[in-house]
Design a protein around this nucleic acid. Structure first.
Lengths: 333, 333
DNA sequence: TTGTAGGCGTTATCAC
DNA sequence: GTGATAACGCCTACAA
């Protein structure tokens, strides 16, 4: 069933059918209805390939992420797909893993698929070294790149992110002002957002004229998470803390579990703040206070931005949303 | 940069270049190398559209699910995408929501994209009424359909699932034999797997000559989950239980939280078993005993099955994997 | 308003 | 082993 079949059945030329398909203006209402009728009856759908060949677009955007099973990323993927599909775009998902090489090759693969844009989820795509993000800037020469939770300057690159710096700063200030001055900062990687959060953490200390104790800043790798090594080490070193600011809820819960095991009272003797406001925070006990970084809003903003880019309208290259602190039971402000 | 450019640079015809691209046999090693060299130097990638037009395949499979942000589904999506990509296939994600109408239209949309197969995640696609699954059977006329965690008889339909019936039966037997004879069964919807689990629950009772108390079988809608209504109602009715078998971890955690609030000792006075062995189970306290239904194994099996179907090899139309009980702190067997 | 014809970049079928 | 050339199904000037 192709455009020729339809044109024959409807007694018009393929050009007219094509015009109806793309609801081009220059078709008389009568012919249009006639063609539409035949199309519906024949259960016809245009062939995407042929379409793409001519238009050089397949109405598809690529979604790149490290690991779509990560709770936060899974949500982002969900919202993005929903928004994109609502606008007639398909989503090709591609998980790259955490290795730079794999990220690069995945991106290259996607580029060859003639998709219309690429959305990168997660600030981990923004590497330290300028040369390590070159592949992203290069890709931007071919199609628009949308960055979620990360920022990169460049032509045809658009960043949508949450104000992690201020959110963390404000949260830590709250802890400090609540007489919790030894605050453990837990984060997983020195990603763009990880660094923003750390900056916020430090800024809060500075604002209150408190020194930053580097021992309290912990970069947690997978190993540290699976065992309780991290906290044991701290404890052995004699490092005490009465507050925890974690870069994600999972880290916060590790701290919480450790504290419970040590019979430390929460929130009286220890206050904990997580990040992402994920479902995990409502599973633990006491339930976790967490910073909500607005995944859904980020995703809808990203999509509208992208549509604007497609329509060649002016678009801000960096949009920053602000987060909210969701207070539950691990803090008492 | 297209096949003509390459053929010119290499001094051969486009047919030869095409043969090299698809590494067809009838090309001399010398010419092959020559062409490959030019291809690499020119950073050329074949146009997928043109390719699809000819081959009628775009090396892409559609992944349909209700909600990719659901923890379990998110994992499945992740594993599927990984396996498919490893075999050179792209994944188009499409979340359908829970309405039958939306499922149908999403499927139809996907069908029109000339993809090579469709994978349906979640047994909720298997509706009660025969007429409500007709759209799936119809789709199977066009391309192979893989069902994850659900089963449907039909030409060109392949089901990969876990043995929820036996897993639940065995788990409930353990509870019963552990002197927990009033077992609450919590489930979310009468999906295929939901019903299997319920069957297992009942069978266990039958095996131990225990009556099934229908009051203890609770279908939990969203509302019941958000409030504590469910448990309060039970309590008001004077319905007691000392065991909980939940169809997913989230439900189990609801029960757990309720019990904790009531100061019911776990696992002494109440034993709880969840389902899916999700990360949630390790966030709560005490940590949740849960049935691991092998998402990863299901996904890899699904992918290998699909590849076999593509190669027109014989393939089992129903593969059942067995699950494992992961014992943590909400039970003491 | 409608139709004709050429082009998009491949693959596949012939010849040679 | 290699090279023309006709599909593939659609879009879009250009012509009528």
């Amino acid at each position: 069933m192709n455009i020729y079949d339809i044109s024959q059945k409807a007694g018009v030329s393929i050009a007219t059918v094509s015009r109806v398909i793309n609801n081009s203006s220059n078709v008389s209402e009568k012919t249009k209805q006639k063609v539409l009728k035949v199309m519906n009856e024949s259960d016809y759908t245009p062939n995407v390939f042929a379409r793409g060949l001519g238009k050089k677009s397949m109405q598809t955007v690529g979604i790149l992420c490290m690991d779509s099973s990560d709770i936060y990323i899974a949500q982002a993927v969900y919202f993005l797909e929903r928004e994109l599909r609502a606008r007639g775009y398909n989503s090709i998902l591609c998980c790259t893993g955490y290795q730079l090489k794999d990220k690069q090759s995945s991106l290259k693969l996607l580029l060859s698929k003639q998709i219309d844009a690429i959305i990168l989820i997660g600030s981990s795509y923004i590497e330290e070294k300028e040369s390590d993000v070159a592949y992203i800037k290069n890709a931007a020469k071919q199609l628009p790149i949308i960055l979620l939770n990360g920022h990169l300057e460049g032509e045809n690159i658009y960043s949508i992110l949450c104000d992690d710096y201020n959110a963390t700063k404000d949260a830590v200030l709250k802890l400090i002002d609540n007489h919790k001055k030894e605050i453990l900062f837990l984060y997983r990687a020195a990603t763009y957002s990880g660094k923003q959060k750390l900056r916020g953490y430090k800024k809060a200390h500075q604002l209150r004229n408190l020194p930053v104790n580097e021992d309290l800043i912990c970069l947690c790798d997978e190993e540290a998470l699976n065992t309780t090594t991290l906290f044991d080490t701290l404890s052995k070193k004699g490092i005490r803390f009465n507050g925890v600011m974690a870069a994600d809820d999972q880290l916060a819960i590790k701290a919480l579990k450790y504290a419970r095991k040590q019979s430390i009272l929460i929130p009286q003797s220890l206050e904990i703040i997580g990040y992402n406001n994920s479902i995990l925070g409502t599973c633990c006990e006491p339930e976790l206070t967490s910073i909500d970084n607005k995944v859904e809003a980020i995703c809808t903003t990203a999509t509208t931005t992208l549509m604007r880019v497609f329509e060649a309208e002016d678009s801000t290259s960096k949009i920053v949303l602000s987060s909210t602190l969701i207070e539950r039971q691990t803090t008492r402000f």
